[in-house]
Simulated scan of single mutants.
Amino acid sequence: MSNSTLSYYNQNAQNFSDSTLNVDMSVLYAEFLPHVTEHGHILDAGCGSARDAAYFKKQGFTVSAFDASAELAALASSYLQQPVDVKTFQQLDCVNKYDAIWCCASLLHVPKAELPQVFLNLQTALKPNGVLYVSFKYGDTERVHNGREFTDLNENSLTHLLSHTQLKAIKQWQSVDQRPERESEVWLNALIKVVHVL
C-alpha cells in the first residue's frame, strides 16, 4: 500500500469504518462460507472495520485479522473484541495456518507488480484445502482516486496473476457495490483454491 493510500485511511479511519460497518454482505458470505471447514480459522486480511471478521466470529469460526492502517486496526480491534494486527499483505509470512482467507476490497491497494508475490504469500498461509476470497474493482488499470491508489482487475488479468501460483479460481463473478450511491461501481469477485500439482 502506498504512503498516500495509508495516510488516507489513517486520517479517515472513523468515517470509513462508519460507512462500511452496516453494509449487507450476506450474498458474499453465502458464496464463501460453504467452502470453509466448520469452526475453521478465517483470516480477515485488510479487515477495515472488521465487519466481516465479527460476522464470522458470531458464526462460530476462529478469526484473525490485520490491516495496514494502525488507526483502522485500533477501531477494528475494539469492534471485534480481540487484537487486530497492523501489517501489510507483503508482511504475511505464515505457513499452513488458515482454513480460509477473506480479502474483501483490500488487495485492490496492492500495486500490480507486487500482486504475484502477495498471492504466493496467501497461498503459503492457507492450509492445503483452504479457500481464498478476493474482490477488486472491475477494470484493468492502475489509478489514483481521491488520494488512494487502486489496482483494478478483470477475469483475464486475475487468471493471469494466478497462473504464477498453485492457486486457481473456482468461481469468478461480478457484483455491484452495496453502499448507497455506489450502485454504478462494479466489483470482480473470486473464490480461489490451491491446486495440488502432482
Rank of each mutant, 00 (worst) to 15 (best):
N146I: 08
N146H: 09
K168Q: 14
Q174R: 15
W173E: 11
D152T: 04
D152C: 09
D177L: 10
V144P: 06
D152A: 01
E149S: 14
Q172K: 13
N154L: 03
K171T: 09
L162A: 07
N146P: 03
N154E: 00
N156L: 03
Q174T: 11
R143D: 13
L158D: 05
R143Q: 15
N146R: 13
T159G: 03
Q166H: 14
V176Q: 12
V144G: 03
A169R: 06
R179F: 09
V176Y: 14
A169C: 09
K171G: 10
W173T: 12
N154Q: 03
E155N: 05
Q166V: 06
V144A: 13
L158A: 06
W173V: 04
L158H: 09
T165K: 02
W173A: 10
E155Y: 08
V144C: 10
H164L: 11
L158I: 06
E142V: 15
H160K: 08
H160A: 12
Q178W: 07
S175H: 10
H145Y: 12
R182W: 10
T151F: 06
H164C: 01
K168W: 11
R179Q: 08
Q178Y: 09
G147K: 03
L161W: 06
P180A: 10
R182L: 07
L153R: 04
Q174F: 00
D152I: 03
S157D: 01
F150S: 01
A169Y: 06
H160V: 03
N154I: 00
N146Q: 15
E149W: 02
Q178S: 11
G147C: 11
Q166R: 14
Q172H: 08
T159S: 11
Q172T: 15
K168A: 15
E181K: 13
H145G: 07
T151N: 04
R182E: 13
E149D: 09
R143S: 14
E155K: 08
S157R: 08
K171F: 10
N146L: 09
R182C: 10
P180E: 08
Q166Y: 05
V176A: 07
N146M: 13
Q172E: 12
L161F: 04
N146K: 13
